[in-house]
Simulated scan of single mutants.
Amino acid sequence: MKAPDAITTPADYLAWVPEKRREAMTTMHQLIRRTAPDLEPVIVYGMIGYGLEPYRTQSGCSGEWPRIALASQKAHMSLYLCGEGENGCYPAEEAKERLGKVSVGKSCIRFTKLENLNLEVVEELVAKAAAPRS
């Protein structure tokens, strides 16, 4: 569920999120801001992105993508954590078993309730995603 183009700030986004998800999304936003204060939050691709960085694919495509992103989707909420982990996997993949009752893709953690998500592990992963890259 992509936010409308009229949404231009994280505060607007959080106000737009359905009321039943607003508290969970606000808590996640605050956790990210507290853990990664140097990553500027912006609205990008209809979600809140933190720490936009340039990228270039092997095929030559380029653009900007956030290190971390938070989105309210149709059936769930999503936290995206970009960057490689220690074993060549994405950090979310590496921590899959410790995250709680959630669905994990390569870089995406999907959850329906905040109570199902281990926030201590999320904080650890956000810190890794926000760490300076060499």
Rank of each mutant, 00 (worst) to 15 (best):
K2F: 08
D5C: 08
D5L: 14
P10M: 09
P10E: 10
P10N: 08
P10W: 04
Y13W: 09
Y13A: 05
Y13H: 01
A15E: 11
W16C: 12
W16N: 05
V17Q: 05
V17R: 05
K20V: 12
R21E: 07
R21F: 10
A24S: 15
A24I: 05
T27L: 04
L31D: 02
R33K: 13
R34M: 03
T35L: 05
P37T: 11
D38S: 14
P41G: 00
P41N: 10
V44W: 12
G46D: 03
M47A: 14
M47Q: 14
Y50L: 13
P54K: 10
Y55E: 08
R56L: 03
R56S: 13
Q58N: 13
W65I: 13
P66Y: 00
R67N: 04
A71D: 08
S72Q: 12
S72H: 06
Q73G: 13
A75H: 13
A75L: 11
H76M: 11
S78W: 06
L79H: 00
Y80E: 02
Y80N: 04
G83C: 10
E84T: 03
E84G: 15
G85T: 06
G88N: 06
G88Q: 07
C89Y: 00
Y90I: 01
Y90T: 05
A92C: 14
E94G: 01
K96G: 03
R98Y: 03
G100S: 09
G100Y: 04
K101I: 07
V104L: 01
G105R: 05
G105K: 10
K106Y: 04
K106E: 00
K106V: 10
C108Q: 02
F111N: 11
L114Y: 08
L117N: 09
L117F: 01
V121M: 05
E124Y: 01
L125M: 09
A130S: 11
A131G: 04
P132C: 07
P132N: 10
R133E: 09
R133L: 13
S134T: 15
